[in-house]
């Protein structure tokens, strides 16, 4: 297993797989990364007269020499990409991420104040339909619970020094140790739970024509209820955001979690930026998801708790699924 992982990483074109995904999600934030590679002249081909300015130019270009000291990149005198990584992380990912989080919270509060709770229009029927199996619910809540823990510890690692240091005082060090352990050890568990959940729900989340019409009417945000099957267009979109975002954060997370496979600094810097950026986007998505799945919509939260939803809720939000479940007419 370990060997396989090792092979997968050493051979995996991490950037080739992840960069397109990353561009999708974080075009602006991470654009400077793309310019990272810089061809370095090989000093060995130079003959006599290799000295002075020429030598120093190579050194500052990050050329690697020989070092009797073992260790990754011990022969590299200057780490070229470190500066870039620090600037992108500290001056782009951190502030933009904070704005994104704050903005999302603000929008959710505004949505709640302006639109209020999305009620079951006809009131509860008292009759329920089975919507989520026990397996579905266990998977959902394992992923959700781990996500919350990982988000809290991850945000502490990204932003903690700016406010937790004052808030916790002497307890800061211990809390951060704990955060790192939680993050590193629960991460792989999250990978497994997320993968199972995504696989189990894949079939239900393929887009179809019904979803197009659903999107065309903005999901009924401004009145009316576009038709929807088991999952509506918005839910499918969240699934795919979680799918691609999840692959990105899981892959990059594992790269950083197991530094013993000889990955070099460049790989881990890129992994770190992708991980932080995509995670911030997913946290915002998860906030919106949690709002819509609890406070925002009446009758939905109980579905994920007990597995049963009210029939009138089903009729209102997932009419095609309701008809199908009731055997009214064939599914579209």
């Amino acid at each position: 297993m370990v060997y396989l992982l090792k092979r997968a990483w050493s051979e995996s074109p991490l950037n080739a797989v992840l960069v397109p995904m990353l561009l999708l999600v974080l075009l602006v934030t991470l654009a400077p990364l793309v310019q990272a590679a810089d061809p370095v002249a090989d000093p060995a081909v130079k003959g006599n007269g290799y000295q002075g300015a020429e030598y120093w130019r190579d050194v500052t270009r990050g050329v690697a020499g020989y070092s009797a000291t073992p260790g990754n990149e011990a022969g590299v005198l200057i780490n070229r990409s470190g500066d870039e990584w620090r600037l992108v992380r500290n001056q782009q990912v951190k502030p933009y991420g904070a704005w994104l989080l704050g903005g999302t919270l603000l929008v959710l509060v505004l949505v709640f104040m302006l639109l209020g709770r999305n009620k079951i229009k006809e009131g509860r029927s008292g009759r329920t339909l089975k919507r989520w199996d026990l397996v579905d619910r266990v998977l959902h809540w394992s992923v959700a619970g781990l996500f919350v823990l990982l988000a809290l510890t991850g945000l502490s690692i990204l932003y903690g020094r700016h406010f937790l240091l004052d808030a916790l005082g002497g307890g800061f060090g211990g809390f951060m140790q704990f955060s790192k352990l939680v993050h590193n050890y629960l991460g792989p568990l999250f990978v497994i739970c997320l993968a199972l959940m995504l696989l189990k729900w894949l079939g239900r989340n393929i887009f179809n024509a019904v979803d197009l019409r659903w999107f065309a009417r903005l999901g009924g945000l401004f009145g009316g209820h576009p038709s929807a099957g088991y999952m509506n267009g918005g839910e499918k979109m969240w699934y795919w955001v979680l799918f691609f975002g999840g692959v990105a954060i899981c892959a990059t997370g594992l790269v950083m979690d197991f530094p013993n496979f000889g990955q070099l600094r460049d790989t881990m810097q890129d992994a770190n930026l992708i991980h932080a950026g995509v995670s911030l986007v997913l946290i915002c998505g998860a906030l919106a998801h949690a709002y819509m799945g609890s406070l925002g919509t009446e009758g939905v939260f109980e579905g994920m708790v007990s597995g049963e939803v009210d029939e009138n809720w089903a009729k209102q939000h997932h009419n095609l699924w309701y008809d199908e479940a009731k055997g009214h007419k064939p599914p579209q």
Partner: peptide, 28 residues
């Protein structure tokens, strides 16, 4: 006492100065 061994200082350091003893499982 506060350091959590995240390795960020190594990513950022221009000279590769920070070093990490391997500690515990999985190359942590």
């Amino acid at each position: 006492d506060t350091c959590i061994g995240c390795g960020y200082c190594l990513y950022a350091c221009p000279f590769g100065a920070p070093q990490f003893p391997q500690d515990g499982a999985f190359g942590q």
